[in-house]
Simulated scan of single mutants.
Amino acid sequence: MNATKPLHLLLGLLLLSCALSLLGVAVGSTGFSLEMLQGGDAVQQQILWQIRFPRSAGAWAAGALLGLAGAVAQGLFRNPLADPYLLGASAGAGLGVAVLLVLLGLSPATAAWSMKLGLTGAAFLGAVAAVLLTLTLARGVQQTMRLLLAGVIVGVVLGSATALLTIMTPDIMRPMQAFMLGTTGFLSWASVWILLPVLLGCLLVALGASRALDALTLGEATARSLGVRLPLVRLSLIATLALATGAAVAQAGLIAFVGLVAPHLVRSRTHSTHGWLLLLSALTGGALLLAADIAARWLIAPQELPVGVVTSMLGGAYLLLLMHRGKVGELK
């Protein structure tokens, strides 16, 4: 496969995101229709501007955060299988959201703007705690298998705790089940105005640490000799990983594989430094989740599939295809 220049890939992803955004607002409970884009009555315009547009924009932003989080995790821990799920961050964020919703007796579908901001904070704290617990159990990042095993254990335990809280609170069981499967149905303009600033902030911090990530690929000793302040870099990137994961999970629920697959897709198309990899992974993650959301709404319309199920199926199929072809190089 010929490598694509990063700038060309950037332009291609931007065009793809624009095309998917237009397609996203044209897909509703009745399937694909362009009538609303050509006008319509007041009710149709309200559906377009208050439901479909924020849902598509929010899905793209949440996917971009997950793609960025995956690239940060893989670069920071020097592990091609690291992502928010495997490190326990998603499960921790989900538990933080579940605890707050149960304490307040609210549903993620009816939360106001201030409450959505509070959910993001709770998810951030849960994600930080989960990542730190994973690192503690793994005794650092030196042993890859130990890190992955610790992440799986933390994810399973915290996921079970979230399920237990859901069962104990029947009033919000149904929306919480949708939340745990991953859904873009709860997204609104309030979600968009939370996700976009978080995405911008996380992206700026990650890009600021991109040279440190490049140095880390040569080993910790080499990075130190080049003047990289590893404790500060780790602290800032773990906070970025947790905030990006927490914001996405708080607004769209538990969505798997986007953070894992997006950086691999970028690496399969272009060879670049972490500066480009982080930016392109975010754009790829946004396009992936938006495409999955369109498929979830369109495949069995008027019913709707949980978008987390769609991403799991597509992401799992992609990784199995790579394993079947023996393209180990694409997983590096």
Score class of each variant (00 low, 15 high):
W189T: 12
I194W: 13
T166Y: 02
T166G: 09
T184A: 14
A178I: 00
V141G: 08
P175R: 05
L132D: 07
A123C: 03
D171T: 11
M145E: 13
M176L: 09
R146Y: 03
L181M: 15
M168C: 09
Q143L: 05
T184Y: 07
S191I: 05
V156F: 08
R146V: 06
T136M: 08
V192Y: 12
A190P: 12
P170C: 02
V192W: 13
T169I: 06
A178S: 14
A123E: 10
A138E: 02
G121I: 02
I167C: 02
G140D: 08
Q177C: 01
T184E: 00
T134W: 00
G118V: 07
W193N: 09
I167K: 12
T144H: 03
A129R: 09
V157G: 06
L137S: 05
G151Q: 07
L125I: 01
W189D: 07
S188Y: 13
S188F: 13
G182W: 04
I172S: 06
L187V: 10
L149H: 08
T144E: 11
L165T: 06
G118M: 10
G121K: 06
L181R: 15
I194A: 14
V152C: 06
A122V: 02
L164T: 10
W189A: 07
L164I: 14
T136S: 10
W193C: 11
V154N: 01
A190H: 15
L132R: 15
G151L: 05
A127V: 02
L135K: 12
A130C: 11
P170G: 01
A163R: 14
V141E: 14
L187C: 13
A129Q: 11
V157Q: 01
L164C: 08
L133N: 00
V141M: 13
I172T: 03
L158E: 08
M145N: 14
F124V: 00
S191P: 11
M180A: 10
V192K: 15
R146W: 07
I153L: 15
T184C: 07
L158R: 05
V192E: 06
L181V: 04
G159Y: 07
D171C: 00
V192H: 08
F186D: 13
G121T: 02
M173S: 10
D171P: 01
T169K: 13
V131K: 12
L181T: 15
T134N: 05
G126A: 01
V152R: 04
V152M: 11
T136R: 13
W193I: 04
S160A: 15
T166W: 04
M168F: 05
